[in-house]
Amino acid sequence: MMQTVFVQIRCRPGTTYDVAFAIVLKEIHAELYSTSGEYDLLVKLIIPKGDDIGRYINDAFRDVDGIERTLTTLTFKAF
């Protein structure tokens, strides 16, 4: 079983394309979107069951230059 997590990313002005490219190179995402509004990117991650979600996200994004803030949304099977 896997855990689906969405991470919204706010980038420093002028760095959105660089941040997106760095994430693509890591090959950690299931989907990656550019968004409008308060955040610039939306990343869908599929995290293996049993992995620490906080550590996974921290390890995934800590070395990506240009990230100003993130907002993580956990999902739950409702149906």
Rank of each mutant, 00 (worst) to 15 (best):
K49P: 02
I46S: 08
D63Q: 12
D40S: 05
Y39T: 08
G50M: 14
T35Y: 06
L32F: 00
I67K: 11
Q8M: 11
V64Y: 05
R69V: 05
K26W: 07
G66Y: 13
F21G: 04
L32M: 02
F61Y: 14
M1K: 08
L32V: 00
D59K: 14
Y56G: 06
Y56F: 15
R62Q: 11
R69W: 05
G66D: 09
N58R: 14
T73K: 04
K26G: 04
D51A: 12
K49W: 04
T16F: 01
D52N: 15
D63T: 15
I67V: 13
P13W: 04
R69Q: 15
D65L: 14
K77L: 13
A20F: 03
Y17N: 10
F76C: 10
Y56D: 07
T35R: 09
I47E: 08
F61A: 05
V43G: 01
G14S: 07
T15C: 05
E27V: 04
N58K: 14
D51R: 09
R12W: 02
I23V: 12
S36F: 12
T4K: 15
K44C: 01
P48T: 12
E38P: 03
A22T: 07
T4D: 09
G54M: 07
A60I: 07
R55C: 08
D65S: 13
A20R: 04
I53G: 06
S34I: 13
Q3K: 15
A30N: 10
H29R: 03
D18Q: 15
E31M: 01
L74Y: 15
T4G: 03
L42K: 02
H29W: 00
T73W: 00
R12Y: 08
M2C: 05
M1A: 12
R10Q: 12
I9R: 01
V19T: 13
G54E: 13
D40E: 06
G66F: 10
T4F: 07
G54T: 13
L41K: 05
E27G: 08
F6A: 03
F79A: 11
H29S: 09
M1S: 13
I9G: 01
D51I: 03
L45F: 15
P48V: 06
V24K: 10
I23H: 01
E68K: 15
T73A: 12
V19G: 04
T73R: 02
I28M: 08
A22F: 07
A30W: 00
V64D: 04
E38V: 04
D63I: 05
G54K: 10
K26Q: 11
C11N: 06
N58Y: 15
F21K: 14
